[in-house]
């Protein structure tokens, strides 16, 4: 269960492939065609080597909590969603992504715990990627 708001992200032509993936329940990441770097945040080129050819590939959806905060005071749409967990999750593919961990007992969370992705529909053709304990 989650009572988190699901604000729609800002999508543009460069990030459309990523967000199209979320609508299908997949975490699709751009991989550099030249150096194989897994690019985050998603871009149409590789910021590591400058290559402008990328291939979008589905990630496993698994990762590890890199850090988290149990937020007691939210703002805007999150004002009434407290407590909620903001986190960085390190995907098994490498990138550390800013996200939420959906957890009924946030005091039980620890850095290093394994998590898997869940998607929450924004109602606008996209879904927010969040994580729960694997």
């Amino acid at each position: 269960m989650s009572n988190l708001p699901v604000p729609a992200p800002r999508v543009n032509s460069e990030t459309q492939p990523f967000w199209d993936g979320t609508a299908e329940g997949r975490l699709v990441l751009p991989h550099c065609d030249r150096c194989a770097f897994v690019i985050w945040y998603p871009r149409s080129f590789c910021p590591e080597c400058g290559c402008t050819e990328v291939t979008w590939k589905a990630a496993s959806g698994f990762g590890t909590i890199y850090s988290f905060s149990i937020t007691r005071k939210g703002q805007g749409e999150y004002r009434h969603a407290t407590p909620y967990v903001l986190a960085y999750v390190e995907l098994d593919e490498g990138p550390r992504v800013l996200t939420n961990v959906v957890e009924d007992d946030p005091d039980a969370l620890e850095v290093g715990q394994r998590v898997r992705v869940v998607f929450h529909d924004t109602g606008q053709g996209t879904a927010l990627y969040r994580f729960c304990r694997a």
Partner: peptide, 15 residues
């Protein structure tokens, strides 16, 4: 360019 990947999850300054 990063906005779409940071703004929807309830980030505040303190958290």
């Amino acid at each position: 360019p990063e906005a779409g990947f940071e703004n929807s999850w309830g980030i505040t300054v303190p958290n």
